[in-house]
Amino acid sequence: MFQLYAYWISTALLCLLYMASAATYVVKTNWVRQALTELGYPGYLIPILTTVKILAVAAIVSRINVALSDLAYAGMFYHLLLSASAHLNARKPGGALPAAAGLVLLIASFMTQNAARELASPYAPAAVEHQVVN
């Protein structure tokens, strides 16, 4: 039961983080463009990242295809690692905190997904069933 709650809470928070980020990219485009430029990235990444973030959330929440869901987890993992790395490299460690929180949520969601979903991922640990022995 703990794994079920851990999955849904971590997944909801991870998806909320990604959707808030995508919304920020849409609402504050100029601010995001300036922030990306300070990190050394081109501004044309904004619509690409916005689209990919929304699609990753849709793939994980809908889980139409397990392989696509696992690919979304992998993409989020690399995105969060690169985001944290870029902020640390630019000597802005405060900007790496959302990425670090996202990594924790991502790992928790990925590791507990088989306990909550009917179709199991071959890459996540199998759900553990506890038996009560009298």
Rank of each mutant, 00 (worst) to 15 (best):
A12P: 02
V132I: 10
S121L: 10
G94H: 10
L97R: 06
A126I: 11
G75E: 03
G43H: 00
S62R: 12
L68V: 12
T50M: 11
V52H: 05
E129C: 00
A120H: 09
A59M: 13
L4F: 15
S10F: 09
A120S: 13
P125M: 12
N114P: 04
V133G: 00
N134E: 11
T50Y: 13
L105K: 11
I48A: 06
K53R: 08
S109G: 11
A23V: 13
G40W: 04
R63N: 12
T24A: 11
I64S: 07
P125Y: 10
L105T: 05
I46C: 02
F2Y: 12
L97C: 04
V27I: 14
L103C: 07
V32M: 13
Y78G: 09
G94A: 13
N114H: 07
I48M: 08
Y78R: 02
P122S: 00
L88V: 15
A74H: 05
M19G: 01
L88C: 13
P125E: 14
V26D: 01
T37M: 07
V61T: 05
T37E: 09
L17A: 12
V66S: 06
A120I: 03
V104Q: 03
L14D: 05
S121I: 05
A99R: 02
I64R: 07
I48T: 06
M1K: 09
H87L: 08
T51G: 10
N65M: 01
A84Q: 09
H87F: 15
A100M: 14
T37K: 11
K92H: 10
A35D: 09
A56N: 10
L106K: 11
P47D: 03
V57M: 04
A116K: 02
Y25P: 00
A100F: 14
K92G: 01
H79Y: 12
E129T: 10
H130S: 06
V133M: 11
A127T: 05
Y5H: 02
M111W: 14
V26Q: 12
Y44M: 08
